[in-house]
Design a protein around this nucleic acid. Sequence first.
RNA 1: GCCUGGAUGGCGAAAUUGGUAGACGCAAGGGACUUAAAAUCCCUCGGAAGUCAAAUUCCGUGCCGGUUCAAGUCCGGCUCUAGGCACCA
Length: 799
Amino acid sequence: MYEHKEIEKKWQKIWEEKNVFQTQIDKAKEKFYMLVEFPYPSGVGLHVGHARVYTASDVQARFRKAKGYNVLFPMGWDAFGAPAEQYAIKNHIHPKQAVEENIKVFKGQMQSLGLSIDWSREFSTTDPDYYKWTQWQFLKFQEAGLAYKAEKEINWCPTCKTGLSNEDAQGGVCERCGTKTTKKLKNQWMLKMSSYADKLLDGLKDTQFLDKVKNAQINWIGKSIGASVNFPIKDTEDFLEVFTTRPDTLFGVTFMVISPEHPYLKKYENQIENLEEIKADQEEAKAKTEIERTDATKEKTGIQIQGLTALHPITHKEIPIWISDYVLINYGTGAIMAVPAHDDRDYAFAKKFNIPIIEVIEGGDIQKEAYVEDGLHVNSEFLNGLNKEEAIDTMLEYLKENNLGKKTVNYRLQDWIFSRQRFWGEPIPMIHCPSCGWVPVPEKDLPVVLPDVESYEPTETGESPLANIKDWVNVPCPKCHAPAQRETDTMPNWAGSSWYWLRYTDPKNDQQLASEECLKYWGQVDLYDGGMEHATRHLLYARFWNIFLHEQGLVPYSEPFLKRISHGMILGPNGEKMSKSKGNVVNPNDMIREYGADALRTYEMFIGDYSKDAAWNENGLKGCRKFLTRVWNLQEKVIESNENTKSIENILHKTIKKVTEDIENLDYNTAVSALMILLNEMEKQPTITTKDYRILLLLLNPFAPHVTEELNERNHLGDLLCVSAWPMYEEAKMQDETYTMVVQVNGKVRGKISVLTDTKEEEMEKLAKEIPNVQNFIEGKTIVKVIVVPQKLVNIVVK
RNA sequence: GCCUGGAUGGCGAAAUUGGUAGACGCAAGGGACUUAAAAUCCCUCGGAAGUCAAAUUCCGUGCCGGUUCAAGUCCGGCUCUAGGCACCA
């Protein structure tokens, strides 16, 4: 009887006691670094979706190990940040304690899945031994001038009472709690990520990320090439600088628009005649949420600034300046030149406020809509008659020569807002001294450890809860020893996950973030599995961080991840995302208890294309359990022999090849299917040999590691499977003596015949024409052509 | 609106990159074993026509067209759908 409970417990214990999955550097072997995104240990435990991802990674790790690689397959915990803090507040416990409890649950569940993780490398981002190095690396950014403090209008979540990066506030809602975000001016630590935009783009060439992942990153970075143009402001020495991707349309400019946050509104306050009206508008813009402001479908609003007028840089005509919130302060220069004839938004704005529209490119009907296509330029002096590309080049040349502007590149990517007003994060290791300014905490004083406190709830003022802990905040300045104060903001929870894969290579090192030897040997991650939701933010932060460390000579590789794949989600049985409120949550614990981890693993690999979402179906799981039971029952047919059974030798070798290639290509579903086919064939045999059986078990082992080990042991087939080599296939044994030759007439199948594999083309054609049903279709017709594809088919074309 | 993918039986899906569409599994129906059920095993299973049963034929991979001896696969144009970006100048 196949009793999964005892078997699984037994083998998990054996693996642990023998330290089978502990990994050391072994230069004689090629390494394989399998990384899967470490989880955020929440209170609810593992999801069956987690089980899918970890199983797939485990299949990969076990397979590579059997193939002779020295495999690194580590796991840790990403445990800083809002959710742990919220959970702790709700349950009235310290976040540290909450994290410990949750980790215990997660780890227990992972162990019950039988994952071949090297647990000796485990750590949490919240361990002071770990975040010491996160802080240390922040100081490296600071030293390099890449960390700076800036008064920034930031996305503010009124519920979490914290600043959010653009990445955390996508669509104008707080990533964690879903509240609409507002704006708030705050002095924040920033990391100069934007200056790495080109490096982040170029580096993609050295990776094998999925195209959709690469594309998501390219979009996010949002590089656009254009020109900055200076428009003189009438009666001043000043200029209004704009960014445009269409300098060729410069002669079509009929107005300009600046963002409500543009500094000139303050600078020329005294000159502006309708200042009150403008100020009211500014207030309004501030009150609007990001989502309201960026709703492209809504009617444009705007006010013309009286008393402040620009001049066209070439024609010197007067151009009115408007203020409108469709122009964003954090992109380009916060000001645009508007060409209503050839831009949709400018067109809508001009129509609404009756601003003239000048056509400068032929081809459209500017009475009806803005014409954004290419065409010949008109009304454009020296650009007349040129198409878009030529006109852009000519204009850029002209602007440069006349000192009116220049070619410019702009990015959507912004600097990384690195401050959070929270308790549960890595303290930013900086001290503010009244006379020395910001002073880094000396290396010897790291880590700056979070204090043990009673209350870690956010403050009403928006200051971090740490600000209230005077003992902790007040320290002497490291430079002049005068009374000074610690930074009370903490790091975003993206910080800890921006270098964790490096730490796995050398997790206990107390001298360095990881030794050079370990970093060199384990090097880049060979395969990094994670969700599509992390394809932009986490992956960009991590790459930015790694590229920086590489430039500092701290890590040997510029790109951290060689290959990035993304997995699909497991949906509820109804095809919807699993959620408590929908009542469609499947708990992996229940499934393991009832069907066993091996069945669950096999099912989750068989469920469908790994990169795609899949709906849960318990009957499918039952089917996989049945498959394992049949593998179990097959032992009754096993006879002792060092040979393969002749009648299944062919399919055996084909299956080895198929499973090997499928696992390499992450086609887990077809690998399982190939094993089912092999089992079907084996069951048809009166007996199978011990050699046959061991091959089946070896191939199945990555998917169902416990039951295969048990069967291997019970039938005395050889060494533990988890330390045995992957079986090899021989092409010679895969050759078929015959094959089914397909015969078509005019491309339609009219007959099939079994022929010898080495049948010559002429013979194939002759045999094809002899098939009675084929004759029915060619009789009385003229044969125009005969196509013969050796070892496949014959197609007779008749008229 | 722009950038990626995807669409195949009742369901999850396969298909060597142009060569037998639907492997494998689930569900369903029929049968065996059993006092019975569960478990297990065997058979059928895209639709239609045809037949005692077959053979066989026609239709069929989101829609319309094209290339080719041959198209789920390639090309052009749509529709729907998932994900990413989005008043980004």
